[in-house]
């Protein structure tokens, strides 16, 4: 795309499915996933990269969905909470969050799960401090965080 354009055709893989869409270039990735693909499990909390609610995976690593254009995901593999749920990849975390009541309103939860899963993949036995550090960019207004930390620690113990 060597010329400046206002809309662009993109081809990407989202939760394992091939997606071909034409999007306005100003549409960010999380808005694209939510509005164009109906993947409403990723949430929008601030649109300036601070609250963490839009965290998703692009090519295997967590990123802020509001700080990337859908156009930039052309050719990428994107995973959202819907995909991670369907494959069972975050099942132990989900179970631990449920048991610990590590969510109240649930708005931050999909991003918390994906962010925690990224930690456990890199570090299967994190300390509480490492868990808190990993989640340092994900705002939760309901829980006070402790139950989330407990749940991630439980999932680590269960071998997520």
């Amino acid at each position: 795309m060597t010329r400046a354009v206002k809309s662009v055709a993109i081809a990407l893989k989202v939760n394992g499915e091939n997606v071909n869409e034409t999007v306005p270039v100003r549409r960010n990735l999380v808005d694209f996933l939510r509005a164009d693909l109906g993947l409403t499990g990723s949430h929008v909390g601030c649109e300036h990269g601070v609250c963490g609610a839009c965290t998703i995976l692009v090519d295997g690593v967590i990123v802020r969905g509001c700080l990337m254009l859908a156009a930039q995901a052309d050719g990428c593999e994107v995973e959202t909470v819907e995909g991670a749920d369907a494959t069972g990849r975050i099942a132990k975390l989900q179970a631990a969050f449920h048991q610990r009541n590590a969510l109240q309103c649930g708005f931050c939860t999909p991003a918390m799960l994906l962010t925690a899963a990224a930690l456990l993949e890199a570090n299967p036995a994190p300390t509480r401090e490492e868990i808190r550090d990993q989640l340092s960019g994900n705002f939760c207004r309901c829980t006070g965080y402790q139950a989330i930390i407990d749940a991630v620690a439980d999932a680590a113990e269960a071998g997520e």
């Binding site: 939510r34 499990g41 649930g106």
Partner: peptide
């Protein structure tokens, strides 16, 4: 909670 953990919540912007 189970629904919310699967990304199946239904908030206003959804």
């Amino acid at each position: 909670a189970k629904r919310l953990l699967a990304g199946r919540g239904r908030y206003i912007d959804d």
